[in-house]
Structure formats: C-alpha cells, structure tokens
Design a binder for these strands. Structure first.
Lengths: 266, 266
DNA sequence: TTGATCGTTCCGATATACGGAACGTAATTT
DNA sequence: AAATTACGTTCCGTATATCGGAACGATCAA
C-alpha cells in the first residue's frame, strides 16, 4: 500500500487518487476510502471534489462511487513510453509464473530505491504476495532489489547501503551488513536470494536483466514461502529464470521482427 | 492548452503533472514549465519536489529534467480497464485515418462534456489538429461532440445545451440554437457535421459508436480543413466512417479474446 | 569581465486546506 | 412504525501549509 506521506496536501490527494484506483471494478465509495485511509470524511469529500473537477476521477451517476477518470488514463499513456521494459517483460513474467507456479515481479532501480513495475501472480493456493505494482522499497531489500546492485562499484554500493540504513530506521529488517553480504553472494552465484528479509516466512530469488549495452536495466524475481524452498527447488528456479531472462534480453537487443508474438502455448 | 483551474493547489499541481507529461522525450525543465504555465518558479519547484517525493515524477540525474514517474504509469494501468472502448477503437481510428488521410479522434461523453480519448493523426501535409487526447469540450461543440447527442430525448438535450451555453460564456462559438439544429440534422442524416465551430477554417464529420445494447458509447469523427470539404468528399467520408464503425461495433458485440484481468478485492 | 539563464533557498503574509460537528437521506433493524 | 445505523454533504472557525517575491550560487555565453 502507498506511504500516505507526512505533511503535504498534495501527497494526501495523490494517495487518495491511488486509493480510488486500487478499488475494484465497483469503484470506491467515500466511506470505503475513509476506512482505508483514515482521513476525515470531510477532507476526503473536498479532495475528491477537486480531483473530479480536474477530470482525474469520475463519479458514478447511479450510486455515487468514484472511479479513475480519463486524465488518469492520459497520464498513463504518456508515462508508458518511459518504461518500455515493463511492456516487453510482461511475456517473460507470465512464462516464469507459468513454469514455476510462483508470483513473479519486475523491478527497476529508481535512485536509491527499487520499484516494482509489473507483477504476475501465482496460481498456487498459497501465494506470497508482498510487493504490489508501484511499491517502492530501499535498494537491497529483497531478491530483485539485490540483483539490481550486483554491477555497482563497491564505493557506490556502500554509499547506497549506508544511505538506506540511515533513512529507513523504521525498517529494522534492513541490515546493511546483510545486504552487502547478499550482494557478494549474488555476484558469485549469478542470482540473488533472500529468506525472510521482506516478511517472515517469505523468500525470494532474483536475477538482473541486462540491456543491449550490458547495463542492468531491471531485475526479475520470484517470491514464495520459505517452507517451499530447498536446494532442489532452487536449482529449477534458477534455470527457469535464466532461460526466460535470456530470451527477454535477446528481445531487448535485437529488433528481429520475427519473434514478436508467437502463439506457442506450452 | 489545459485549463489550469482557478484556485486549488491540487488543481495547480495536477496541471503541472500534465505539463510534465506533455513534454517531449527530453523531459521538462523547471524553466520550461515556468514559461509554459506562467507559475512562479519557486512554486513550481516546491510542487515538483512533492510530486517527486510521491513518485509521480522522476528527475533525471544528469541534467535535472523532470519526467513522468512510475506512479503515473501505475495509475494509467489501473484506469485503462475503465475505458475499454479506447483500446478497441484504436484499430478503427488507424484504419479511418489511413483510408481518408485525415486526423481521426474518438470521444466519449462525460457528464455535460465530451472528452477526446484517442487520436490518430493524419499524414496529410495540412493537418487539422485542434483536439488533443484528454481535451474536454462542451457537448455539442464539434462533430463527435454532436454525434454523442443524437439519441437523447429533447428535454435532456435542451437542458445540456442550456447548461453549456450558460457555463461557457468565454466560448462564443458555442451557440445553443446552432447545436440544436446540428443535432436535428445529424438525426436525419445519420452523421454529424460542423464547419468552423471549433476553429475558423476547420470542419469535422462524426458518427456515434453503439455498444451491444444499442446505447451510444462514444463517437468517432474526422477533422479536416474547410476548403477540402465538398459534397463528393463528404460522401466518401461517410462511407468510410460507417464501414469502420460497423466493424468496430461487431467487435464490441462479440466476446473477442481480451486479456485476462485478475479479480480485485475492494 | 559582464551578462544571461537556470535551479535553489528563504521567509513573511495570507489564502487555503483542514476537520469536527451538525444535517438530510436512505438502508437496515427491532 | 419507530428506532438505529450508515452514508454523503455542507458549514465554518482555526491554523497551517501554500504562495511568490527576492536574493543567492552555479553554469554557460558573449
């Protein structure tokens, strides 16, 4: 869920906008938003009126529920071109989730943070869903957020870890030493893994995605419950991840038009 | 372009967000935004800092320019499902633009307004580009905004026209009587047309798009320069519009294979 | 050097957001 | 039917966050 930050009427309004968006197809009622955000109803009412006036949300004529408006769609279209990786990786995520049966996400680096750009859910009965699309977490926290770091020089790496350790005191799970150690292991193994770093009982395994230049453009990771994890499982996951990421990287590199969309359903 | 509404810090910030989005691939610099919006630079600076903190814009590490952030993309994905017509109509718009050589847009009704959801530009050297994606204009103003009205009962139609005539005094081109007359003609002809109603020297021709229930869900219109318009051209345009809209309506009716969407828990 | 452009910070005044409280209405319960 | 709960809306005094002019440092150009 969003951070719903400290003191900024703007941040509060944007959080409300996200809350409206995260409601289901039925839309968000004022009371539902009140329950979810904890904001006073009168404040919500006023902010929603502003958002509606600007066209960012619509109000259903029948029952008065709120939905995202066309301005939200327009800005999304404009933003889409900034994240081409998210489009291309969708197929890879789906295939990985299919082959492994586990939830799969794509993350990219954003300053000192990692942000989840896309996610495909597992069909397994026990799903490890911790990171939603749009969730921001400090670099190094989690499998993909660790895989993003493996190419960094040591000094820059330490700067990031130090910064995040200082600025996330509320996240005791973020342990600088552990992160550095995890990055070292990931460099040696070719993949990053964690167990319980995001939430107790949850584990993850991630690998970087490299663009044509060889730079890391993102990372794909699989999330699962710790019990499920053993050496045998790891071996399979690493193989699947490697294969699919390799396929994705070929797409990123070569604009070979033949492999646009092949209907080979396994 | 955008309305940049009266007195609301929120509206101002959202307008700024749209301005950032409307910048090209190079991003928006602070001074560029200052020039474009007229807001004081210090205000822009502060608002951008808030937007950046909330993840709605990114700041390029190199030259400091601003780009849309991942939250903009996330909200766009969420909003996308609210406007399925825009997805399906994209192909129809492209075909119409291809066959006629003119700019083609899709509009839907939103309260007492019409909003442009999608646009495909003409390749012609002289392009009539007046309505951008996201532009809101009063119902009745323009070809598609007239086509949206043809099914309405007379009393509701008159209420809308009266309201818009009252609330858009700055838009002298909006003439209530002309709109009513244009709707009557559109009912008889099966298509709406206008000449010079949006801008001098520009004309347009539009037809409604009906969903499975028969209700009007939107309207597609072609925009062109007035000189180009004669009886012969009109005949061709009407035929192309009718054919492509008919094809689109068949798609809307038949349960074509759309992408699977995961159910949400509101 | 001078001048121009850009991004950033500061700070007092005031416009603006804030939210508790009260109201009208609809839905649900007794 | 009366009572109760839930919801959306409006009001209004308070105070706080926004506003924007001004000044500053940095960068680049002439």
């Amino acid at each position: 869920m969003s951070v719903m930050a400290k003191h900024s009427s703007l941040a509060r309004a944007l959080g409300l906008l996200q809350a409206v968006g995260s409601a289901g197809a039925g839309g968000a009622s004022l009371s539902w938003l009140h329950r979810r955000t904890g904001l006073p109803k009168s404040s919500i009412h006023r902010i929603l009126a502003d958002l509606r006036g600007a066209g960012w949300i619509d109000q259903d004529g029948g029952n008065g529920t709120y939905h995202l408006g066309f301005q939200a769609r327009v800005i999304g279209d404009l933003a889409r071109r900034r994240f081409p990786l998210a489009e291309l990786a969708r197929l890879a995520l789906a295939r990985i989730a299919e082959r492994t049966g586990q939830t799969t996400i794509l993350s990219v680096r954003q300053g000192f943070d990692a942000v989840c750009l896309a996610r495909v859910e597992a069909k397994a009965p026990v799903r490890a869903v911790a990171v939603e699309v749009g969730t921001v977490r400090p670099l190094g926290m989690g499998a993909s957020a660790t895989a993003l770091l493996v190419d960094l020089a040591d000094d820059e790496l330490e700067e990031i870890v130090r910064y995040n350790a200082d600025h996330h005191p509320r996240t005791p799970l973020f342990n600088g030493e552990l992160v550095l150690e995890a990055v070292r292991r990931a460099r040696a193994d070719g993949y990053a893994q964690h167990d319980g770093q995001i939430a107790r009982g949850m584990a993850g395994l991630g690998m970087p995605v490299r663009g044509p230049s060889g730079d890391i453009e993102g990372a794909i990771s699989i999330a699962f419950v710790s019990d499920w994890f053993d050496a045998h499982a790891r071996e399979g996951l690493v193989r699947v991840l490697g294969e699919e990421i390799h396929r994705l990287e070929r797409q990123l590199a070569g604009p070979t038009s033949t492999e646009v969309s092949r209907p080979d359903t396994p």
